[in-house]
């Protein structure tokens, strides 16, 4: 090494210098590059096997056919033709999209209100921390456990109705086995994703910025609209993004609380797969993937989440 570097000293012909230029630099660069790839490989292998391969296989299988109970490995559009000509398919797509958008809107609004309240109207730091903890803690507990209490809470002889009848109100059958129940349940499950990020985004805003806006004569509402909301947008989108990730694949809530009254694509996929109808399930999965990519992509357009890293 030393002789090589020595030969790079000035006094040697410029042509030699140019040829040997940056050997060490390039070696260091290559060493860094190699290390990066070595560190990355295990994660990429898992992703390739358990995420990329499945997606490719789904596209492939969606062109197969079932003949009775027999799986036929062809490559034609018969399966897609069947799926696309079935009015149920469009109902599924529409109900999935509608449910997801309604829940996201609700969760966003609730999360924004709650996060804003927590950040601006709870002045005690201790209480703020406690409330924040309470608001995000349920995320860490079993989601399934949370939805199986729905029935005793909202069922015909459940807690709500017990309380209602004991104060002389009529029985309610609003929140079990219908679409409203499903949306309500999903909102309550996924609002935890929004409160935290919105709160953090709002508390990162310098108090001076808000004071400055108020000094310039802006009302609280104008300040919120023109200063705080744009700055909190990152937190809101982070929350909605994660809520959407869970929402698109969630088939259990619809089944257990919605009672299957308003099936989503995820539920349909699970049922077709359960009965061995792989090509149909795969076609629906491709469609669901496209819808999810579309919605998540739109959210990324609103705010590039990489900025939050």
């Amino acid at each position: 090494m030393s002789t090589l570097s020595r030969s790079l000293s000035p006094g040697v012909e410029t042509a030699t210098v140019a040829a040997g230029e940056g050997v060490n630099e390039r070696l260091a660069e290559r060493r860094r590059n190699r290390r990066a790839w070595m560190l990355l490989t295990p994660a990429l292998v898992v992703t390739a096997v358990a995420a990329i391969a499945p997606l490719l296989v789904i596209i492939w299988v969606s062109f197969w056919r079932t003949d009775g109970l027999q799986l036929v490995r062809t490559f034609d559009f018969a399966n897609w033709g069947r799926v696309l000509s079935d009015p149920t398919f469009y109902r599924l797509v529409w109900s999935t999209l509608r449910t997801v958008l309604i829940v996201l809107a609700l969760v966003g609004l609730l999360g924004l209100v709650a996060g804003y309240y927590l950040a601006r109207y709870v002045t005690s730091r201790k209480l703020q921390t406690l409330l924040l903890m309470l608001a995000i803690l349920p995320f860490w507990t079993s989601y399934l456990i949370r939805i199986i209490t729905w029935q005793p809470l909202f069922g015909n002889s459940g807690v709500i109705n017990f309380l209602a009848t004991s104060v002389g109100l009529p029985k309610m059958e609003m929140f079990l086995y219908n679409q409203r129940a499903m949306i309500f349940a999903m909102s309550s499950l996924y609002v935890v994703f929004v409160i935290g990020p919105v709160f953090w985004a709002l508390s990162r805003i310098e108090p001076d910025v808000i004071a400055a806006s108020r000094m310039l004569g802006a009302s609280a509402w104008t300040t919120f609209r023109t200063v705080e909301l744009p700055l909190a947008r990152g937190g809101l989108v982070v929350g909605l993004f994660f809520a959407a990730i869970f929402l698109f694949g969630d088939y259990a809530t619809g089944r257990l609380i919605g009672g299957g009254t308003n099936p989503m694509l995820s539920d349909a996929i699970s049922q077709y797969a359960g009965s061995g109808q792989w090509p149909v399930a795969a076609a629906l999965a491709v469609v669901l993937f496209l819808i999810a990519t579309l919605v998540l992509g739109l959210l990324m357009r609103v705010y590039d989440l990489r900025k939050e890293l």
């Binding site: 090494m1 570097s5 020595r6 790079l8 940056g22 060490n24 070696l27």
Partner: peptide, 17 residues
């Protein structure tokens, strides 16, 4: 950092690498 060109020596010993 590594230099793009040139060398560094201490007590006459090349330490660039």
């Amino acid at each position: 950092e590594m230099p793009t060109a040139g060398s560094i020596a201490v007590d006459g010993r090349d330490i660039t690498a």
